[in-house]
Amino acid sequence: MEVLGHFNYWVVVVLMMIGFYALIARGNLIKKIVGLNIFQASVFLLFITLGKVTGGSAPIIAEGITVYSNPLPHVLILTAIVVGVATTALGLALVVRIHESYSTIEENEIADMDREP
């Protein structure tokens, strides 16, 4: 089945859409951050599966192993995960401050409070 051949891509796409849906449709700021995380996770998955070679082993030189997975995407994603964690942390910190100032974390209510008189 050609369409299902690259099932990893399908997983990525589905995760990405779930993430976007949360971003677009949810007014709760924390849910938005969760959506953002799912979206990012889908991209991490994309990179990781790109580097995986079927039947390949971890890239450690050892006797009798000739097929290795590509380690570079995995290394890159380590960096990206760090960035993602930092973003989440910052986002949550902002939500805390927003809650302190507005006493709500619903986007609509915040927008209503901000509307120019």
Partner: peptide
């Protein structure tokens, strides 16, 4: 104007929608 259709502070969701 500041609250007009073209200048309104859009909720994040709608902004992301535009990206898509």
């Amino acid at each position: 104007g500041p609250a007009g259709l073209l200048a309104r502070t859009l909720p994040t969701g709608r902004t992301v929608f535009w990206v898509l």
